[in-house]
Computed example of a mutant assay.
Amino acid sequence: MSLPTVILPGYLAGANAYLEMERALGDLGFPTTTVPLKRRDWVPTLGGRSVTPILQQLDQTVKRVMQQYGSDRINLVGHSAGGWISRIYLGEKPYSVHPADKNRVCLWQAHPTVATLVTLGTPQVSRERWTLRNLDFVKNNYPGAFYPSVRYVCVAGKALYGDRKWQNWFAYSSYEMTCGTGGCWGDGITPVVAAHLEGAENLVLEGVFHSPRPGRLWYGSPQALEVWAKYLA
Protein backbone atom coordinates (compact mmCIF):
# COMPACT_ATOMS: atom_id res chain seq x y z
CA MET A 1 0.00 0.00 0.00
CA SER A 2 1.22 3.53 -0.83
CA LEU A 3 2.17 5.77 2.06
CA PRO A 4 -0.15 8.63 3.00
CA THR A 5 0.93 11.96 1.51
CA VAL A 6 0.83 15.44 3.02
CA ILE A 7 0.87 18.60 0.88
CA LEU A 8 2.29 21.85 2.30
CA PRO A 9 1.01 24.85 0.31
CA GLY A 10 3.18 27.63 -1.02
CA TYR A 11 3.58 31.12 0.38
CA LEU A 12 0.29 32.96 0.98
CA ALA A 13 -1.67 30.02 -0.44
CA GLY A 14 -4.56 28.24 1.23
CA ALA A 15 -5.41 24.56 1.12
CA ASN A 16 -8.29 25.00 -1.33
CA ALA A 17 -5.84 25.75 -4.15
CA TYR A 18 -4.53 22.18 -3.86
CA LEU A 19 -7.79 20.26 -4.17
CA GLU A 20 -6.98 19.28 -7.76
CA MET A 21 -3.57 17.97 -6.71
CA GLU A 22 -5.05 16.17 -3.72
CA ARG A 23 -7.69 14.43 -5.84
CA ALA A 24 -5.21 13.49 -8.57
CA LEU A 25 -2.84 11.88 -6.07
CA GLY A 26 -5.76 10.04 -4.51
CA ASP A 27 -6.73 8.71 -7.93
CA LEU A 28 -3.19 7.33 -8.28
CA GLY A 29 -3.53 5.46 -4.99
CA PHE A 30 -1.88 7.94 -2.61
CA PRO A 31 -4.24 8.97 0.22
CA THR A 32 -3.51 12.68 0.43
CA THR A 33 -4.17 15.48 2.91
CA THR A 34 -3.30 19.14 2.51
CA VAL A 35 -2.19 21.13 5.56
CA PRO A 36 -5.41 23.11 6.25
CA LEU A 37 -3.92 26.56 5.83
CA LYS A 38 -5.81 29.73 5.00
CA ARG A 39 -4.22 32.79 3.42
CA ARG A 40 -4.42 34.66 6.70
CA ASP A 41 -2.29 32.00 8.42
CA TRP A 42 0.71 33.38 6.51
CA VAL A 43 0.29 36.93 7.84
CA PRO A 44 2.57 36.38 10.90
CA THR A 45 5.37 35.27 8.55
CA LEU A 46 5.35 38.38 6.33
CA GLY A 47 8.54 40.38 5.96
CA GLY A 48 10.84 37.41 6.45
CA ARG A 49 9.61 36.63 9.95
CA SER A 50 9.49 33.18 11.53
CA VAL A 51 7.61 30.40 9.72
CA THR A 52 7.04 28.55 13.00
CA PRO A 53 3.23 29.01 12.78
CA ILE A 54 3.31 27.10 9.48
CA LEU A 55 5.63 24.43 10.87
CA GLN A 56 3.25 23.90 13.79
CA GLN A 57 0.30 23.29 11.48
CA LEU A 58 2.42 20.98 9.32
CA ASP A 59 3.46 18.97 12.37
CA GLN A 60 -0.13 18.68 13.61
CA THR A 61 -1.28 17.49 10.19
CA VAL A 62 1.50 14.93 9.81
CA LYS A 63 0.80 13.43 13.25
CA ARG A 64 -2.93 13.30 12.57
CA VAL A 65 -2.42 11.61 9.19
CA MET A 66 0.01 9.05 10.62
CA GLN A 67 -2.49 8.17 13.35
CA GLN A 68 -5.39 8.06 10.89
CA TYR A 69 -3.63 5.62 8.56
CA GLY A 70 -1.65 3.73 11.20
CA SER A 71 1.57 4.57 9.37
CA ASP A 72 4.99 5.38 10.78
CA ARG A 73 6.03 7.32 7.64
CA ILE A 74 4.58 9.67 5.07
CA ASN A 75 5.40 11.34 1.77
CA LEU A 76 5.72 15.12 2.00
CA VAL A 77 5.05 17.42 -0.96
CA GLY A 78 6.04 21.07 -0.59
CA HIS A 79 5.01 23.61 -3.21
CA SER A 80 7.11 26.77 -3.60
CA ALA A 81 8.08 28.03 -0.11
CA GLY A 82 6.45 24.90 1.28
CA GLY A 83 9.47 23.00 -0.02
CA TRP A 84 12.12 24.82 1.99
CA ILE A 85 9.82 24.98 5.02
CA SER A 86 9.57 21.20 4.76
CA ARG A 87 13.37 20.98 4.84
CA ILE A 88 13.32 22.87 8.16
CA TYR A 89 10.71 20.40 9.40
CA LEU A 90 12.98 17.45 8.63
CA GLY A 91 15.86 18.93 10.59
CA GLU A 92 17.48 18.27 13.95
CA LYS A 93 18.73 21.76 14.74
CA PRO A 94 16.51 24.25 16.58
CA TYR A 95 14.96 26.75 14.21
CA SER A 96 15.72 29.69 16.45
CA VAL A 97 16.97 32.43 14.13
CA HIS A 98 14.06 34.77 14.96
CA PRO A 99 13.52 36.57 18.30
CA ALA A 100 9.85 35.54 18.23
CA ASP A 101 10.90 31.88 18.58
CA LYS A 102 12.79 32.38 21.84
CA ASN A 103 10.21 30.58 24.01
CA ARG A 104 8.72 28.31 21.35
CA VAL A 105 9.34 24.65 20.62
CA CYS A 106 11.34 24.89 17.38
CA LEU A 107 12.85 21.43 17.10
CA TRP A 108 11.05 19.14 14.68
CA GLN A 109 13.39 16.23 13.81
CA ALA A 110 10.87 14.79 11.36
CA HIS A 111 13.28 13.12 8.93
CA PRO A 112 12.68 9.59 10.27
CA THR A 113 8.97 9.94 9.44
CA VAL A 114 9.39 11.23 5.85
CA ALA A 115 10.09 8.65 3.16
CA THR A 116 10.05 11.04 0.19
CA LEU A 117 10.19 14.82 0.04
CA VAL A 118 9.01 16.32 -3.24
CA THR A 119 9.58 20.04 -3.76
CA LEU A 120 7.63 21.74 -6.55
CA GLY A 121 8.97 25.01 -7.90
CA THR A 122 10.75 25.66 -4.60
CA PRO A 123 13.35 28.45 -4.55
CA GLN A 124 16.12 26.60 -2.73
CA VAL A 125 18.21 29.79 -2.82
CA SER A 126 17.31 33.47 -2.87
CA ARG A 127 18.88 36.92 -2.95
CA GLU A 128 15.71 38.59 -1.75
CA ARG A 129 16.45 40.24 1.59
CA TRP A 130 13.18 39.23 3.25
CA THR A 131 13.85 35.52 2.74
CA LEU A 132 17.60 35.41 3.35
CA ARG A 133 17.47 34.64 7.08
CA ASN A 134 15.17 31.66 6.60
CA LEU A 135 16.80 30.27 3.48
CA ASP A 136 20.31 30.75 4.84
CA PHE A 137 19.27 28.68 7.88
CA VAL A 138 18.18 25.87 5.58
CA LYS A 139 21.15 26.13 3.22
CA ASN A 140 23.77 26.28 5.97
CA ASN A 141 22.33 23.56 8.20
CA TYR A 142 20.86 21.11 5.68
CA PRO A 143 22.71 21.55 2.37
CA GLY A 144 21.57 19.52 -0.62
CA ALA A 145 19.77 16.21 -0.19
CA PHE A 146 20.89 16.19 3.43
CA TYR A 147 19.31 13.10 5.00
CA PRO A 148 20.25 9.78 3.34
CA SER A 149 17.07 8.15 4.66
CA VAL A 150 14.89 10.64 2.74
CA ARG A 151 14.38 10.52 -1.02
CA TYR A 152 14.60 14.11 -2.26
CA VAL A 153 12.85 14.89 -5.54
CA CYS A 154 13.11 18.50 -6.75
CA VAL A 155 10.80 19.48 -9.60
CA ALA A 156 11.28 22.59 -11.73
CA GLY A 157 8.98 23.96 -14.41
CA LYS A 158 10.36 25.23 -17.71
CA ALA A 159 7.57 27.37 -19.09
CA LEU A 160 8.77 30.95 -19.43
CA TYR A 161 12.07 32.59 -20.34
CA GLY A 162 12.68 35.79 -18.45
CA ASP A 163 13.43 38.90 -20.47
CA ARG A 164 12.82 42.63 -20.27
CA LYS A 165 9.81 42.65 -22.58
CA TRP A 166 6.73 43.80 -20.72
CA GLN A 167 4.94 40.44 -20.93
CA ASN A 168 7.91 38.62 -19.33
CA TRP A 169 9.11 41.38 -17.03
CA PHE A 170 7.64 39.86 -13.86
CA ALA A 171 9.34 36.52 -14.54
CA TYR A 172 12.63 38.29 -15.30
CA SER A 173 12.49 40.22 -12.03
CA SER A 174 11.53 37.14 -10.00
CA TYR A 175 14.32 35.05 -11.51
CA GLU A 176 16.87 37.82 -10.96
CA MET A 177 15.80 38.26 -7.33
CA THR A 178 16.14 34.51 -6.79
CA CYS A 179 19.33 33.48 -8.59
CA GLY A 180 20.87 36.76 -9.74
CA THR A 181 20.09 36.26 -13.43
CA GLY A 182 16.80 37.27 -15.01
CA GLY A 183 17.52 35.88 -18.48
CA CYS A 184 16.90 32.19 -17.84
CA TRP A 185 14.17 29.56 -17.92
CA GLY A 186 11.74 28.90 -15.11
CA ASP A 187 8.11 28.44 -14.16
CA GLY A 188 7.33 32.16 -14.20
CA ILE A 189 8.34 32.58 -10.54
CA THR A 190 11.21 30.21 -9.75
CA PRO A 191 14.11 29.70 -12.18
CA VAL A 192 15.07 26.12 -12.97
CA VAL A 193 18.58 26.57 -11.63
CA ALA A 194 17.26 27.60 -8.19
CA ALA A 195 14.72 24.78 -7.85
CA HIS A 196 17.19 21.89 -7.69
CA LEU A 197 19.40 20.49 -4.93
CA GLU A 198 22.74 18.76 -5.11
CA GLY A 199 22.29 15.02 -4.58
CA ALA A 200 18.53 15.11 -5.20
CA GLU A 201 16.62 13.57 -8.08
CA ASN A 202 16.14 16.75 -10.08
CA LEU A 203 13.39 16.94 -12.70
CA VAL A 204 12.51 19.57 -15.30
CA LEU A 205 8.94 19.62 -16.62
CA GLU A 206 8.44 21.36 -19.94
CA GLY A 207 5.63 23.89 -20.13
CA VAL A 208 4.78 23.75 -16.42
CA PHE A 209 3.97 27.02 -14.62
CA HIS A 210 4.35 27.84 -10.95
CA SER A 211 0.78 28.38 -9.79
CA PRO A 212 -2.67 27.02 -10.65
CA ARG A 213 -4.70 29.02 -13.15
CA PRO A 214 -7.62 27.85 -15.30
CA GLY A 215 -6.48 26.36 -18.59
CA ARG A 216 -2.80 26.39 -17.68
CA LEU A 217 -0.48 23.50 -16.88
CA TRP A 218 1.05 23.63 -13.40
CA TYR A 219 2.68 21.18 -10.97
CA GLY A 220 -0.68 19.91 -9.72
CA SER A 221 -2.18 19.30 -13.15
CA PRO A 222 -2.68 15.55 -13.75
CA GLN A 223 -0.31 15.55 -16.76
CA ALA A 224 2.55 17.02 -14.70
CA LEU A 225 1.68 15.24 -11.48
CA GLU A 226 1.87 11.80 -13.06
CA VAL A 227 5.57 12.41 -13.74
CA TRP A 228 6.68 13.29 -10.21
CA ALA A 229 4.17 11.08 -8.37
CA LYS A 230 6.12 8.02 -9.60
CA TYR A 231 8.78 8.91 -7.03
CA LEU A 232 6.44 8.74 -4.04
CA ALA A 233 6.75 5.77 -1.71
Rank of each mutant, 00 (worst) to 15 (best):
W84L: 06
G199P: 08
V62R: 07
G78H: 06
F137C: 08
K38R: 08
L3N: 06
E128N: 07
Y147C: 00
D41N: 13
F146I: 14
I189C: 01
A24S: 00
L117N: 11
A145L: 12
R87D: 07
Q60V: 13
L160N: 08
R133S: 03
G48K: 06
G199N: 12
A200Q: 14
L135H: 02
T190S: 05
Q109N: 05
G26D: 05
E201I: 11
M1G: 05
L160P: 11
V204G: 01
W130A: 10
S211I: 06
K230P: 02
V35Y: 07
T33C: 01
V77Q: 01
G47F: 08
G144W: 15
R87Q: 11
G121M: 15
D101P: 00
K165A: 14
G82K: 00
I74G: 01
V138I: 12
Y231R: 00
Q60G: 13
W166R: 14
R73Y: 07
Y69M: 14
N75H: 09
L90Y: 05
P53T: 10
P191V: 11
I85M: 06
A159Q: 13
A200M: 14
Y11R: 14
Y147P: 02
D136Y: 10
T5A: 10
P94K: 07
Y95G: 01
Q124W: 07
G78E: 13
E201P: 00
P36Q: 05
L3K: 09
G188M: 04
L120V: 08
E128A: 02
W108H: 06
D59N: 04
Y11T: 14
A171S: 15
T33G: 03
R133C: 09
V77H: 00
V97T: 11
W185C: 15
P148L: 09
D136L: 08
N103I: 05
L25C: 09
H196G: 14
Y11A: 15
R64G: 14
L46I: 09
Q223P: 01
W84P: 02
L203P: 01
R133T: 08
Q56D: 11
A171G: 09
S174I: 12
E198M: 06
Y142I: 15
L12F: 12
L120K: 10
L19T: 13
P31K: 03
Q57S: 05
K93N: 04
W166T: 10
W108C: 09
H98V: 06
V35E: 13
A100Y: 00
Y152G: 01
H98D: 11
T119I: 09
Y89E: 04
G144V: 02
E226L: 08
S174T: 12
V43M: 15
L90Q: 05
Y231D: 01
R151I: 01
V125I: 03
E92A: 15
V77Y: 06
V51H: 07
Q57L: 09
T190Q: 04
V227N: 03
G78I: 09
D163K: 08
E206C: 02
R39M: 14
L132V: 14
